[in-house]
Design a protein around this nucleic acid. Structure first.
Lengths: 323, 323
DNA sequence: AAGAACGCCGAAAATATCTTTCAAATGTGA
DNA sequence: TCACATTTGAAAGATATTTTCGGCGTTCTT
């Protein structure tokens, strides 16, 4: 769907075969997910229809119970039809319900043997500070685990390859995502890559025009629908640059122009815990993975560069800091 | 030959009526075995026929692989027939092969997650990408746990109180810490507080001079020895502002001028994993705690402000992203 | 040692489960 | 309000699982 769209766009702009395989690019495919299922449900839920959401909810809420049910049983339990159940299984990345059921059984077993589900309560206005700390730490840990489990290694590998070989890297992000973009830019600079994080949308577009094959553009947006971020990525895409999208919504508009899609996980949010918090944690993990991956591939040049930048900063610190 | 023994043994112990046929297979057995499957196979193996033993062996030896097979597949793999596979499943205590397969999937998942903690090693240059992701996620989770455990609630409470009542908040941080400072500034602004993150040391000092009692200055530095960060905090401190230091070194120079010290945790670093990564994770958790704490204390004004800022951004997103 | 009895084994029928198709129902935009 | 697109479930179609049933080898008896 978005694939067709994307392909037509690319061919319209004329830059053929500039990047890695197009087939692997935009497909939201994921091999069966073992424990990343809960995360995947949260990620994909927004793009589901109502009845599919009911199924997904049941599945995420009671893996053990659902694993014991047949298609028909689960359909009845959720008040839907077999067809809808199968459709949901497909959307979650499985060939059919049979495989979803297998994954469910695995998840149930893990939960069983794993530690207790812990207190997943929301943060309340009158929570004591100690609870706030515990809940925030727990949630962010959860976000990290979900993100790691849900990351598509093929996409990540392709993104790393593109970055490692890139002549120039441009990053687009605003607000919290802008800080993540800057974080990656800083780190890439430290290992000798040319990277720049834009926060001004107009300048970003202006600059994107100068990108071409061999350059890399990265858009970071949780919603995937931020116009100011999509626009420069589109321009970069149409000029033949390799484009990467880091987003929590693998079916969002921004992915139309992305050669590689890296999906961040979505945690539940509350009034006191804006979505920006967990998405930021998730994005940072992805960005760290990209960085380490690139550093590995370009170790020969990265290692000396890291050492040099460390050296250069030494005099900025007080000579005696230990007591 | 073992068959002889087996048969005689069976008839001897079988005693009255039927043997291990339909009677034992029907229901007197335990409910499905979760993880005790390997043991059950060993226990029951002697009472199995040759071809059933082959099936049981395959199942116990490669649960994950067998879970992926259909009855027919497993029959072929073991050189037996579907009927034998089903008979084996029955003997192991399951209603049929379908349920055995489910248990197998669970077992595989458990084994999988069981070997997770083996990733505590440093990241190496030749680590596959999947390992990099796992190690990074694990390390950051560890960092979060350490930070939460090490946070001084009294200091945090005092810092929150000061922030909640602050007329103006200035933040100092450079490089990675600078992004953390900006993150907190962004969030405080969203709930109606006056906050500004400085990255230019000179401007920071210039501005710090104008601070006075009732204002808050926050320095974020992992080493605690960054001169460019200490200086503005010192000035703020000497002008009567309440000062907060977020550092990984509670005995470092920066703490001389800090009314409240929030300690971040330090994870081991390696060449490919600069200290900036884990310190950033740690700092962000602290900053989040500060934010949520302040939001709680000033809920009356914070809640509407949050809602308003969300509203203001809505039109920046493409309309067709919800479903 | 030959015959009979017993139980194991697998091919194929019977059943259950899963998947696909297609048209009705529902929502959406003009 | 109508036309259009999307979603949904009923039922047909395809697979997978379970059961049936008779052949075959083994063992015990005579």
């Amino acid at each position: 769907m978005s694939n067709d769209l994307k392909e037509s766009f690319r061919s319209a702009s004329g830059g053929p075969g500039t990047t890695t395989g197009p087939a692997t690019g935009a497909l939201p495919d994921t091999p069966p997910a073992p424990a990343a299922l809960a995360a995947k449900v949260r990620t994909l839920a927004p793009s589901m229809t109502r009845s599919m959401q009911r199924v997904a909810e049941a599945v995420a809420g009671d893996p053990a119970g659902c694993a014991a049910l047949t298609v028909t049983g689960l359909a009845e339990r959720t008040g839907t039809s077999e067809a809808t159940v199968v459709r949901t299984a497909r959307l979650l990345g499985y060939p059919g319900y049979r495989d979803l059921r297998l994954a469910l059984a695995g998840l149930a077993a893990q939960q069983q043997s794993g530690r207790a589900p812990a207190v997943t309560a929301d943060i309340a206005v009158d929570d004591p500070l100690a609870d706030v700390v515990a809940k925030l730490a727990y949630d962010e840990q959860q976000t990290l685990a979900d993100t790691a489990a849900g990351l598509d290694m093929a996409q990540l590998g392709a993104a790393v390859s593109a970055l490692a070989a890139a002549r120039r890297v441009e990053l687009y992000g605003v607000a919290a995502s802008g800080l993540v973009a800057q974080d990656l830019a800083q780190k890439l600079l430290r290992i000798g890559h040319v990277a720049f994080a834009h926060s001004d949308p107009h300048l970003a577009v202006t600059n994107a025009v100068t990108l071409r094959s061999g350059d890399v553009a990265i858009a970071i947006t949780h919603s995937g629908s931020t116009g100011d971020i999509i626009e420069p990525l589109r321009v970069a895409f149409e000029h033949g640059a390799t484009t990467i999208a880091i987003t929590g919504r693998p079916d969002s508009p921004v992915t139309q122009y992305a050669d590689h899609i890296l999906t961040t996980s979505t945690a539940r949010e509350s009034e006191l815990r804006p979505a920006a918090m967990s998405s930021r944690t998730s994005q940072l993990l992805v960005v760290d993975c990209l960085f380490v991956g690139v550093a590995q591939r370009t170790y020969e040049t990265a290692a000396p560069a890291l050492a040099a930048s460390y050296e250069a900063l030494a005099h900025r610190h007080s000579p005696r800091n230990t007591r």
